[in-house]
C-alpha cells in the first residue's frame, strides 16, 4: 500500500487521537458513557488501523506478540486480583467497599481497576485476533 500517501498521512495523524480518545473513554466511564469494553475496542482499533495501513509486520514491531499475550492474561488477572484483594482485606470476593477508607472510595477504586482490567483484556484480545488473522496467508 505504499502509493496511498493520503491514507498513510491521515492515519498517522489520526491514530494518536484515537488512542487518546480511548484513554478518555476508559477513565471517564464513571461519569459518562464509556468504560473498559468500549475503551479496549477503540484502543485496539487504533492499532488495527495502523496494522491495515502499514502492514502487520510493522504492527508486530510496535506491539510484539509477547506483549499482547501478556496483557491478555494480565487484564484478566488484574480483574480477578482485585476480587482476591477484597477478600484478603476482609470483604467478600469482588466486594470493593473494603479497598479504601470509605465504602464509596473503595467502590471507586475497585471499579476503576476492574474497568482497567477489562479494557486491557479487550484491547489485547482484539489486537491478537486481528494480527493472527492477517498474518495468515491464503
Amino acid at each position: 500500500m505504499n502509493y496511498k500517501i493520503v491514507i498513510r498521512v491521515v492515519s498517522k495523524f489520526l491514530i494518536p487521537y484515537m488512542l487518546l480518545f480511548a484513554l478518555y473513554v476508559q477513565w471517564h466511564g464513571d461519569f459518562g458513557p464509556g468504560g473498559g469494553f468500549q475503551a479496549g475496542v477503540i484502543f485496539a482499533a487504533g492499532f488495527i488501523l495502523y496494522g491495515i495501513v502499514f502492514g502487520v509486520g510493522n504492527l508486530r514491531d510496535v506491539v510484539p506478540a509477547w506483549v499482547t499475550r501478556t496483557l491478555l492474561a494480565g487484564g484478566v488477572l488484574l480483574y480477578a486480583g482485585v476480587g482476591v484483594a477484597g477478600m484478603l482485606m476482609g470483604g467478600s470476593f469482588l466486594n470493593y467497599s473494603v479497598l479504601a477508607a470509605t465504602p464509596t472510595g473503595g467502590q471507586h477504586l475497585g471499579i476503576l481497576l476492574v474497568e482497567l482490567g477489562v479494557g486491557v483484556t479487550v484491547a489485547a484480545a482484539m489486537i491478537t485476533i486481528f494480527a493472527t488473522f492477517s498474518s495468515r496467508e491464503r
Binding site: F37, G40, A125
Partner: peptide, 14 residues
C-alpha cells in the same frame, strides 16, 4: 454481550 459476541464471531471466522 456485544463484545463477547465479536470475540466468538472471531473464533467462528477462525
Amino acid at each position: 454481550a456485544i463484545v463477547v459476541g465479536v470475540a466468538t464471531t472471531a473464533l467462528g471466522l477462525a
